[in-house]
Design a protein around this nucleic acid. Structure first.
Lengths: 239, 239
DNA sequence: TATTAAAAGTGATTTTCATCACATTTATGT
DNA sequence: ACATAAATGTGATGAAAATCACTTTTAATA
């Protein structure tokens, strides 16, 4: 957790591969740059590609007709973006929005499936990646459902700290810009509720704001509330 | 959706494989029989095996300290039971309980990983299976979080109908025994709330009870409430 | 830096849901 | 078939959270 860029470095997908396999994989993709605000793909579309995010941020979300939004992931450097539904001919279940200008390697479904069939190591790396994502997502949802809105909020703070945390004299700084509304969309609540929960934590001296970022001064307090401990750190992320 | 056993048949993991690959896979596992009430594995344990369920039912759940239960999946014939965390050396996040006596093929982590590396087709089949499970779980959780308890209940009914539904003169029968308490654990609510929601639906002529099973007479009503439609049917399951 | 827009903060009100308490109905076993 | 247990049904009550309405603060930009 040295800085923003490195927080995802060791556990990343690419680093699970040997240099040679990394090279093989990258040969099968196309490098693209996508600017802020663009949509990589829409919920409901057919899945054509999987992307490896090399730079920037991509947010995955679901939207409903009543204009309710639900943010599921905030992907960063070295995360995979895209659903493996593409191998099943299922439609996409999330929308991918580029939040800060992104560089990505785009992989075509056919290429990738062929590659997996002939290179089991790369396939296994994908399975592992997938396993991690699945566990992470499920753990997040359990928190959201089992511990009420407060628990959901604490869980989210911990996850942001793990994915985007940088050291701060008083604890951990969440080094990305997040409005209360953003956070509300991440846990399916209202911005007012987020605001009230935040101010409660501030009163208890658990968090503070420093130059627009949330600083968690007592992450143990949040952990205790959720009975963290058995949950491995690597899966407690927001990406 | 001809009968209970066949509802999972075409989309099952095993059927994605050629006869030859099926044979190879089965050779790598051990057949076991486990009786009702047994626990296959506990949340927090190290993941050692993955199981292919050939007969019976296995329920996956999470438990919290305050003795709250949360049921996540109800697995049936030809479903995979076990977490792929075993490839990542992460601990298990769910408990697997045998609900009706089960026959399973048990696969050892090492065997399976070796098999994937040398047989890309099997690895790809696993990736596809995984993709399906992940989408299914995420879709379920979004329903739970976005549409309140009523939405969660409707979503659950639809999922049970898809996984365990059999034809009925008036619609679809959910052909397994489920108490209100069971359903409550599946969506994280109280049995009283389930009961009230059920009776509301009964008044509206959407559901009824026939010989102890729920019969959904107007599944479209439930669908509309959740804005189903874009969601592919195969992932709308409870397993 | 003045203006405007966006975000945060907060009380009041309403809705949703959990919990409690108890009655009634339905299953189950000997 | 009767006793007992399990599950269901339902009102009353309270807590949690959504919503509304508005003010204050902070950020963006012309």
């Amino acid at each position: 957790m040295k800085n923003l860029e490195s927080s995802n470095e060791n556990s990343s997908f690419l680093n699970q591969l040997t240099k040679e396999d990394q090279h093989i994989l990258l040969l099968h993709g196309t490098k693209i740059t996508v600017r802020e605000g663009s949509i990589l793909f829409f919920e409901g579309e057919e899945a054509k590609y999987i992307y490896l995010l090399r730079q920037g941020q991509v947010r995955l979300s679901k939207m409903t007709i009543e204009n309710k939004k639900f943010y599921l992931h905030l992907k960063q450097k070295d995360d995979i973006v895209g659903e493996f539904s593409l191998f099943n001919e299922m439609s996409l279940s999330m929308t991918a929005e580029v939040i800060t200008e992104a560089t990505l390697i785009r992989f075509d479904r056919k290429n990738l499936e062929a590659l997996f069939t002939q290179n089991g190591d790369i396939a296994v790396a994908f399975i592992k990646l997938f396993a991690k994502n699945t566990q992470s997502t499920q753990a997040k949802f359990s928190d959201l459902l089992l511990y009420g809105k407060t628990g959901a909020y604490y869980s989210m703070l911990i996850r942001f700290a793990n994915s985007y945390g940088t050291p701060h004299p008083k604890g951990v700084r969440i080094s990305i810009k997040l409005t209360n509304q953003d956070l509300a969309y991440f846990i399916g609540t209202s911005r007012e509720t987020i605001n009230r929960m935040f101010n409660d934590l501030k009163k208890e001296n658990i968090v503070e704001i420093d130059k627009g970022n949330i600083v968690i001064k007592n992450i143990e307090y949040l952990r205790k509330h959720l009975q963290c401990g058995k949950c491995p750190l690597q899966i407690c992320t927001i990406s």
